[in-house]
Amino acid sequence: MAAATFSSPWLLRRALKAFSFSPTLCVSNKLYFHGVLRPFPVHNPLRHSAAGLCYLAQAIKEDTDVLLKGVADKSTVEELKNILQMARRAESRREVLHTDFLTPPVLKESMLVLGKLADIKAVAQGGYPQAERCRISVGHSEVLRSDPDIITALSITGNFGFQPCSHGDFLGAILGTGIARDKLGDIILQGEKGAQILIIPELADFIISTMDKVGNVSVICSKIPLLALEYEPPRTKSFRTVEASLRVDALASAGFKISRSKLVNLISNGDVRVNWTTVTKNGTTLKSGDVVSVSGQGRLKIGEINTTRKGKFAVELIRYL
């Protein structure tokens, strides 16, 4: 579990300054006050109200730009903008709102950005302590006082002794029911017993009634308590390699023990992801902490990077088993 509570009042000051141009926001003969439309006589020119509103919108835009400064990935930026809008709605309405399941990079950036907002509390939950994919709940610090119940665990059982199924098999079967990926959290494999999955509560009954097979294995889905999840820390193996560059094709081929040409083909086919985002260029540069996923091969984390005397790179590679 992860939680954070935050403060940064400058946006509020900008908002108050904006509305100092016009004490009321008038439209026809009615006044919007905290989202409620109330009768009110028109006594201020509309242009002054519009000027105040535009100033507020500009202040919010500038604040968002400042908060997102340094986030390079465009898709992550768009997700963060939506999460910021949700956080501001939650604060103004004094309610608690929730994201769908987020990938680890978006989750990390979201918690950092939300940490800069005034009076906002943010709680990240994935269903168990080592969860990768998590949902974030946001709300005013006086409203969000406990962890909301926003995740349901399901057990998928079947006779997998003669036909083992991979993470991809379970994922494909679940998505094959028609639900979106961001509604689904982690998938915990259990060997011959099947798997346990985390999902948003609203779709649990749908999965139970719809999903009857994983691969060619007939399955039964049922709800289980989060405390019944069976998980253990991932097993890893670390080793070092010396490479002339930090390109993804160089490090991934070394980490997965496959040829550079095969890795290039996998990239061309869209089967290689860095930090859960598909890469399309062989020359994508990696850094310490990056996670490389290759379909059919597994995952690899980039550890410590040092420069050798000859100008090459000594890289620690951490392979997930």
Rank of each mutant, 00 (worst) to 15 (best):
Lys281Ala: 10
Ser295Tyr: 05
Leu229Gln: 13
Gly168Cys: 01
Thr99Glu: 02
Ala15Ile: 00
Val214Gly: 12
Val219Tyr: 01
Gly178Pro: 09
Tyr231Glu: 13
Ser268Pro: 03
Gly126Leu: 04
Ser295Gly: 13
Gln196Arg: 11
Phe19Pro: 03
Asn216Asp: 09
Ile188Leu: 14
Thr76Met: 15
Gln196Glu: 14
Pro104Gln: 08
Ile156Phe: 12
Ile258Asn: 15
Glu142Tyr: 06
Leu300Lys: 03
Gly127Phe: 09
Ala57Trp: 00
Ile302Trp: 01
Asp271His: 07
Ile151Cys: 13
Leu229Ile: 12
Leu229Ala: 08
Pro45Cys: 11
Glu109Val: 06
Arg247Glu: 04
Gly311Phe: 07
Arg181Leu: 09
Leu229Lys: 01
Leu68Thr: 07
Ser293Cys: 06
Lys193Met: 02
Arg181Tyr: 14
Asn82Asp: 09
Ala124Pro: 01
Gln190Arg: 15
Leu84Val: 12
Asn82Ser: 12
Val279Met: 06
Gly311Asp: 12
Ser268Ile: 02
Ser92Gly: 14
His167Gln: 08
Ile200Phe: 00
Ser92Gln: 03
Ile200Met: 07
Glu202Phe: 02
Ile267Phe: 00
Lys69Asn: 15
Val291Lys: 08
Val138Tyr: 02
Ser28Phe: 03
Ser218Asn: 14
Cys221Gln: 03
Ala250Asn: 00
Trp10Leu: 06
His48Lys: 05
Val71Ile: 07
Pro201Glu: 06
Phe101Trp: 00
Leu56Ile: 07
Ala314Trp: 00
Lys116His: 13
Arg89Glu: 10
Asn265Thr: 05
Gln130Tyr: 09
Ile197Ala: 11
Arg89Ser: 04
Thr236His: 13
Ile188Arg: 01
Asn282Lys: 00
Thr152Tyr: 01
Ala118Lys: 02
Gly303Ala: 10
Gly178Ala: 15
Leu246Ile: 05
Thr307Asn: 15
Leu251Ser: 06
Val113Leu: 11
Gly311Ser: 08
Lys108Asp: 15
Arg88Ser: 02
Leu175Gln: 05
Gly191Ala: 04
Lys116Phe: 05
Thr280Leu: 03
Thr308Ile: 08
Asn282Ser: 14
Thr24Gln: 08
Thr24Glu: 12
Phe239Leu: 07
Glu78Gly: 13
Gly139Tyr: 14
Ser295Asn: 04
Asn44Gln: 14
Thr307Phe: 00
Glu192Ala: 07
Asp271Cys: 13
Gly139Arg: 04
Ser245Met: 04
Gly70Glu: 11
Leu286Trp: 02
Lys69Ala: 15
Ile174His: 08
Ser155Ala: 13
Asn82Ile: 00
Gly127Leu: 01
Val66Asp: 14
Leu203His: 02
Ile188Val: 05
Ser20Gln: 15
Glu95Val: 10
Lys237Ala: 03
Arg47His: 11
Leu263Gln: 04
Pro104Ser: 05
Arg94Met: 15
Asp119Ile: 00
Lys301Pro: 10
Asn306Met: 14
Ser75Gln: 11
Glu62Pro: 00
Leu300His: 03
Ala50Gln: 04
Gly172Asn: 03
Leu154Tyr: 14
Thr64His: 13
Thr152His: 01
Val248Thr: 08
Glu78Asp: 03
Met1Cys: 05
Ala314Met: 14
Pro23Glu: 11
Gly70Pro: 09
Leu189Lys: 02
Ala153Ile: 00
Asn159Tyr: 09
Val42Ile: 12
Lys257Arg: 10
Arg181Asn: 11
Leu227Ala: 13
Lys61Ile: 10
Val214Thr: 13
Ile208Phe: 10
Gly303Tyr: 01
Leu226Ile: 10
Phe160Thr: 04
Lys237Cys: 15
Tyr32Cys: 11
Glu62Arg: 12
